[in-house]
Each structure stands twice: as C-alpha cells, then as structure tokens.
Design a protein around this nucleic acid. Structure first.
Length: 422
RNA sequence: GGAGAGAUGGCCGAGUGGUCGAAGGCGCACGCCUGGAAAGUGUGUAAAUGCCGAAAGCGUUUCAUGGGUUCGAAUCCCAUUCUCUCCGCCA
C-alpha cells in the first residue's frame, strides 16, 4: 500500500510513475485527495468536540469533589449535544477512512526509477544468461520422463485430489526432498535464519502482505475458520514482523523457510499447466529480508546473485530478466526473474522471482525501525524464491536425460543418495 | 468440546468509576561520579493521527479486539480472539 503522505505531497509523481506499470491512477489519486481533505477537516472537528467533552467531564469531576452536585446538571446537558454531534462525525470519519483505505489498496506499488515501460513479458530485459541451451527434438518433456521412470504420478494425484496435485514416488520423492534440504542448507550458509511457519494464515496476515484483497480468488480458503492456505511462505514469514518496531542494529533480518504452497491458479490453461509447469500444490524455499531503506537495492542485487549461484551449482542454463513495467507485480518496485531453460520443452521456465517491495508491504505490516536519530520509520521488505521446486525438477529431468537414465546434479547426490534415475 | 482464571507500555508489575498515557521496578539512552570500569546518582524513555512549511508545541485516539453503560471507563456490562489451569478427546 502506498503511503497517503506520498500521494498528498507528490501526486503527480505517483501518477507518472504508475503509468510505467500501465496503470492510470489519475482518477483514483484525485478521489483519494478529495477524501483526504474531507477526512482531515472532519477529524479536526471531532477532535475539537471530543476535547470539549473531556474538558467538561473533568469540570464535573471537580464539582462532585467539591460537593456542589446541583451545578453539574447544566454541564451534563451541554455534553449531551456534543456527544450527539461527535457520534455523527465519527461515523462520517470512519466511513471516509474506509473509503480512503479501499482506494489506497487498489494502487500498485510505484516502480523503481530504473524500471522501463513495457506491455508484456516480451519487453523484459535479459541482463544475464549462462549455461548450455543446446537441445534437440529427441529430448523428452518431463511429463514423459516421469512416466517412463515412474517417479511422479499425475493421474494418481487427480484421483486423490484433482489436477495439479501430483504424487511423487520413489526416487522422485527423494529428489524432491533432496532439493528442499539443499536449498535450505545453502540459505543457512548464507546467513538466512531458517524458520518453519504455519501453512494457514488469518485474514490480517493475508492482508498485510498484499494477497488480500487483490488476490482473494487465488487462495484456498478454509471458510469455517476463515483461514487461507498460503500461496507462498512469504506470507507467514513476512508476517513475523507485522506490527513491530525493530532496532536499527537488528536490520537486516534474513529468514528462509521451506513450505508447501497452494494456489488455485484460476484461469490458467494449455501448455503452461502441463506436467509440473503449474501446480496447485508445490514446494518452495523462500528467502525474505527486511532492510533499512538505504540498503534495500544493494540487498536485492545480493539476493539475485545468491539465487543465480544456486542455479549455476545445479548446472542448469539460466537467464535473468529485469522485468518491465507491464510485467512487474502489483506489490513490487523492482523484480528480477530467473528462468531456466527446459530442453525437453524448448522453453524458458520461471523458477524464481526476487523483488524489492520498498515500503509497500511494510506500510500495511506496520513494520518499522528506529533509526540512529531515534526516529521511527518504515523498513523495506524483499523476498525471493530460492527456489521453487517443480520447474527446477522439470528442467533437471529434461536437461540431464541420457540413454542410461537421468543424471543427478553433482551437488545433490549427497542428499539423494543416488546419482542416476533409471 | 466442557468448566474456571486471565490479557495493562520493550519486559515485569500496581491500578475496580474522576486531571491515568497509566505507580514502582527492570531494560534502554544521555549526563554526573571514576584514571578507566562496575557500583552509585540525575534526567529522559510508546505509537497512530490531526493542527503546522518544518521543528517546537498543542489536540484526539490507543491499557487484547469490537460494541455498550456513564457527564466521565484500564476499571462496570456484552460479544469475539488469545493465554493459562482442570476435565474430555487425541498424533
């Protein structure tokens, strides 16, 4: 959520920057400003009236103390009418606050100045690429390989639950577990504190990280208890810091977490959902950092670097994209996507996305820190996948297929306990 | 799931209707003391929001959350959430 002060003080800048995200904010901003003016004038009025009420109440207190009870009655009458006015004004006030809030949450985050305009994923800028992307038509896509070696059973998952909930079997399950452990170990080595977090979150948490209200339909909802299944560990991990004021020396905080992730993926279809490409339940290791504002972009680079290093170690061909305005997410100011090349499908698959949210999440989270002058200010939040399993698994299977079987990347062998799937 | 007790500032803890945003302590910050430190000692120590160009200052709100009673609520009433104890159930 954008801060009202920013909109108030630099409305034109907000409007201009949001154009880069192809978002026309003109109307919303002017509505917000209009409501804001009204809101503040009403707040002033209620404040004054409530101050008056308090003053009279104190006077009555004094009168009772002095035992002059009969003097109290006219004063009581006076407050009665003040109370009535205050009540009406308070209703107006909360109505305006609500209105303002509901408009504010519809505005996306302002993109970083370096973000270039663009309409679609086609306009993203490739800033780095490594690894061998040579391929040929004899290489099988992973959904054929998983069947051939009987390591993932999509039909069985459909029977038990539905499409998008595969069953991993034997070496498939072990490879999955190996990847999780490998990712977590790497993150720990790099200073991320490992946490295990709930997979269901309440409304306040889903709201604070921005899943609500924007992505309501994308989350599974346990209605009886009004809890949401997490679409990513980002939600519970970031909410660790909800409503907190950190000390300056506690920053940056670095957390990593493995979790299953649940996404309804309403509206997806075709080749995008084939096999492991898009699932309703998948595994992911997430990294989250909270930093001082001045450090967040250096941290973003460091996180990007960290993710590409892991991909390199897995020996997967990879490219790094700096997202254009049109492709960057609602909540992000700057995002890098990492894609690995999948040789059986002859296409790039997104396996990670690292983003700087600046204060967009921390505003809602009320996540602040005391700077060295003792002033409280909003921290910046960043996160990234490190990494999401299914597509990594898909490209490991496709890229390492040989006539003898699927070769397990060197770094994973100590975790899997085997070096080939055959 | 049933019965009972509770929720107060960064932490502990006092406060059952009247200048209570809240005693006292711990912690923290700054100062004094000291050759330096400890001890001692003094001062300060919440957040949100509004008035204001900014600061200072002032107002309002906040004692789990949301309602209510009252001229006045941390204190009384109702609902919800959470914690603890006992019973039941259970990996």
């Amino acid at each position: 959520m954008l801060q009202i002060q920013l909109i108030r003080e630099q409305s034109q800048f907000v409007i201009d920057q949001l154009k880069i995200k192809n978002f026309n904010a003109e109307n919303i901003v002017s509505q917000i400003l209009e409501i804001d003016t009204k809101r503040r004038s009403i707040q002033k009025q209620t404040d004054d009236i409530q101050g008056e009420q308090k003053k009279i109440a104190r006077e009555i207190g004094q009168i009772f103390k002095d035992g002059k009870h009969d003097l109290a009655n006219p004063l009581k009458e006076k407050t009665a009418s003040l109370k009535e006015t205050a009540k009406i004004l308070n209703i107006d006030l909360s109505k305006l606050e609500e209105e303002q809030q509901s408009l504010l949450v519809t505005l996306p985050n302002i993109p970083h100045i370096s973000v270039k305009p663009g309409k679609t994923a086609e306009d993203n800028e490739i800033i780095d690429q490594f690894g061998d992307t040579s391929t040929n038509d004899s290489l099988l896509p992973h959904w054929e390989l998983t069947q051939k070696y009987d390591i993932i059973d999509f039909d069985l998952g459909s029977k038990i639950t539905g499409a998008g909930f595969p069953v991993y079997k034997g070496k498939g399950a072990k490879l999955q577990r190996a990847l999780i452990q490998y990712f977590l170990d790497k993150a720990s080595e790099n200073g991320y504190l490992e946490v295990q977090v709930p997979y269901l979150v309440n409304e306040a948490s889903a709201y604070a990280t921005g899943q609500l209200p924007d992505k309501e339909g994308q989350m599974y909802h346990a209605q009886i208890d009004n809890l949401y299944l997490i679409p990513t560990a980002e939600v519970p991990v970031t909410n660790i810091y909800r409503d907190i004021i950190l000390k300056a020396d506690e920053l940056p905080t670095k957390n990593c977490a493995y979790s299953a992730c649940f996404r309804r993926e309403a509206g997806s279809y075709g080749k995008d959902v084939r096999g492991l490409n898009r699932l309703h339940q998948f595994d992911k290791v997430e990294i989250v950092q909270i930093t001082k504002p001045e450090d967040s972009y250096a941290t973003l680079e460091q996180m990007r670097d960290y993710v590409t290093t892991i991909i390199k170690e897995l020996d997967l061909p990879c490219r790094v994209l700096r997202l254009c305005g049109g492709d960057i997410s609602f909540t992000s100011a700057l995002t890098y996507d990492m894609e690995v090349f999948s040789k059986g499908q002859h296409r790039w698959l997104e396996v990670s996305s690292v983003s700087n949210f600046e204060t967009f999440q921390t505003t809602r989270l009320k996540l602040r820190f005391k700077d060295k002058d003792g002033k409280t200010q909003l921290a910046h939040s960043l996160n990234g996948s490190a990494l999401a399993l299914p597509r990594i698994l898909a490209s490991i299977l496709e890229n390492n297929q040989t006539p003898e079987g699927i070769k397990i990347p060197e770094v994973l062998q100590k975790y899997t306990g085997f070096s080939i799937i055959n």
